[in-house]
C-alpha cells in the first residue's frame, strides 16, 4: 500500500512533505513516547501520534518512517512542517483519535496483504 492510499479512509489532511506520498507503507506504530518509537518502530511504518513538534521528524527520518499521522486534529507547527518538507516525510492531520486511526490503518494493511478478503 502507498502512503496516499490512506488519505480517504483515514480522513487525512496532507500538511507537509507531499513529495513522499508515493512511499510504500509496511505497517504502523502508535505511540506518543519518542523513545518507544525509537526503540520499536520499524522502517516503512506509519507513525500515529499526538506529538506534533520538530523532534517527531528527526525520529521519523532516523527510523525511515513512511509517514506521520497526527491525531485529533493536531497540525504540525512551522518548524515541523519545514523539516517534513526537507526530509520528504509526509505529515498528515486526522480528526480521528489514535485508537480509531490505528484500527482503520490495521484494516487497510490486512486487506492489502490478504487479497480476496478485503
Amino acid at each position: 500500500m502507498k502512503v496516499h492510499e490512506m488519505i480517504q479512509p483515514l480522513a487525512l489532511v496532507a500538511c507537509s512533505g507531499q513529495q513522499g506520498l508515493d512511499r510504500e507503507v509496511s505497517g504502523g506504530y502508535t505511540s506518543d513516547l519518542l523513545s518507544d518509537v525509537m526503540g520499536h518502530a520499524r522502517e516503512g511504518q506509519v507513525w500515529i501520534t499526538i506529538q506534533a513538534h520538530r523532534n517527531v521528524i528527526a525520529i521519523a527520518s532516523l527510523k525511515e518512517i513512511a509517514a506521520v499521522i497526527l491525531v485529533r486534529g493536531r497540525r504540525p507547527d512551522e518548524e515541523t512542517a519545514s523539516a517534513s518538507d526537507q526530509e520528504g516525510i509526509p505529515v498528515f492531520s486526522t480528526p480521528l483519535d489514535a485508537f480509531e486511526a490505528s484500527g482503520i490503518l490495521h484494516g487497510l494493511l490486512n486487506a492489502a496483504t490478504t487479497p480476496g478478503e478485503g
Binding site: L34, S35, D36, M38, G39, T49, Q51, N55
Partner: peptide, 16 residues
C-alpha cells in the same frame, strides 16, 4: 510533555 523522559533512553542504548 514532548514525549521524552519515559525512562527508556539508557535501556534503548544498552539493547542497541
Amino acid at each position: 510533555e514532548m514525549g521524552f523522559g519515559a525512562g527508556m533512553g539508557l535501556p534503548n542504548i544498552k539493547k542497541n
